[in-house]
């Protein structure tokens, strides 16, 4: 998966109206009936073979009990049933929810506050800071994970700082802790996403017409009321985009979990995207792995749909 564009339902509305004019338009523009299909052919072939077909195969495999070697056994919806009932697998989806708080909720809340403060006085040189804030989006997750392992590790920077300020008693293997490993992974997520969220929100706030603030001030609104009555409603679209991007990032963080904790200790940081790999290639439960992948895809579809519905409703 590459990125998550926000769908727009109105996109094709004018298309049907022009249908009658199509044939004459084709003649006027000088391309044959088959031309658009021929142009699309390479894209469709590669997309059908390596995206649509495997997606269908994933649905098919998810209905079988298969170890990847012998002949699979029809299992119906057993794999999905296990997803709903198995404690460890349900925990993986629960961990994903916790990570959504770190990847999405915290960056948006912090980003809103900081961006609103910054937006009150127009500052110069924002481009320079934007370049820095965007860096975590550009660096490979594997590299980000390596950077953070040297912070959270037993000999890591965090413990060194704690010892230096006399709090050595708190020093520990953060990623090896049953209670703290998940939040530690989550903090990496916050670090990854907050810059993106900030850049999005600042761009959105920069587009708010100044007259709206002047009107609010004439009404005697303070900074806080100004934020809730002018700023927040104006950036709902940007919040929706930020929410979609960060939630999806939280759900497909395989690289990060693989590189930092391998789902451990004791499965306390296992997430669906890691379980797909783990079940398919370590535990050899290919059907179950496929069921997790299909469920993950459906979750991402639904989240996209909900976020866009909500954004549409509040903007119209």
């Amino acid at each position: 998966m590459r990125t998550a564009p926000v769908l727009n339902q109105h996109d094709e509305s004018s298309r049907t109206a022009q249908r009658g004019a199509r044939r004459s338009a084709q003649a006027a523009q000088g391309y044959g009936l088959a031309t658009p299909y021929l142009l699309l052919l390479p894209a469709i072939v590669v997309y059908a073979c390596f995206m649509l077909f495997p997606l269908g195969r994933a649905v098919q495999l998810s209905l079988y009990d298969w170890n990847g070697l012998t002949v699979g056994v029809w299992a119906g919806f057993d794999n999905y049933l296990r997803l709903a009932t198995d404690g460890e697998l349900r925990a993986a989806f629960g961990h994903a929810l916790v990570l959504i708080v770190f990847y999405c909720v915290i960056p948006i809340v912090l980003g809103l506050i900081i961006a609103a403060i910054l937006n009150r006085a127009k500052v110069k040189g924002l481009g320079f800071f934007r370049t820095i804030y965007f860096l975590p989006q550009v660096i490979a997750l594997v590299v980000a994970a390596t950077a953070w392992r040297s912070i959270w590790g037993l000999d890591g920077s965090l413990n060194a700082v704690l010892k230096a300020i006399g709090l050595g008693g708190l020093a520990q293997d953060w990623l090896g802790s049953y209670t703290l490993a998940l939040p530690a992974v989550g903090v990496i997520g916050t670090w990854l996403e907050i810059g993106l969220v900030m850049v999005l929100l600042l761009a959105g706030m920069g587009r708010i017409p100044h007259e709206l603030y002047e009107a609010a001030r004439l009404d005697g609104a303070g900074a806080v009321r100004e934020f809730f009555s002018v700023t927040l409603p104006s950036v709902r679209g940007e919040i929706a985009v930020a929410a979609t991007l960060t939630i999806v990032a939280a759900l497909k963080n395989f690289d990060l979990v693989y590189m930092t904790t391998h789902g451990g200790p004791g499965g306390t940081t296992s997430v669906p995207s890691y379980e797909v790999y783990n079940q398919a290639f370590m535990v050899k439960q290919v059907g179950l792995a496929s069921a997790i992948g299909v469920t993950l895809t459906l979750l991402i579809f639904i989240i996209n749909l909900i976020v866009n519905r909500v954004a549409d409703k509040v903007t119209s």
């Binding site: 998966m1 590459r2 990125t3 998550a4 564009p5 769908l7 094709e12 298309r15 022009q18 249908r19 199509r22 338009a25 084709q26 523009q29 391309y31 009936l33 031309t35 658009p36 299909y37 142009l39 699309l40 894209a43 469709i44 997309y47 390596f50 995206m51 649509l52 495997p54 997606l55 195969r57 994933a58 098919q60 495999l61 999806v248 759900l251 497909k252 395989f254 669906p272 995207s273 797909v276 790999y277 398919a280 290639f281 290919v286 792995a289 496929s290 997790i292 992948g293 299909v294 993950l296 895809t297 991402i300 579809f301 996209n304």
Partner: peptide, 29 residues
């Protein structure tokens, strides 16, 4: 260009943007 099926084809590609690698990588392998 305007041609029959263009809307449907477009939406099928759009859906693909949302499909995570995790979903297709197991059968692909």
């Amino acid at each position: 260009m305007r041609f029959p099926g263009s809307g449907a084809i477009f939406y099928v590609f759009l859906l693909g943007i949302m499909v995570p690698t995790e979903a297709i990588i197991v059968p692909l392998f």
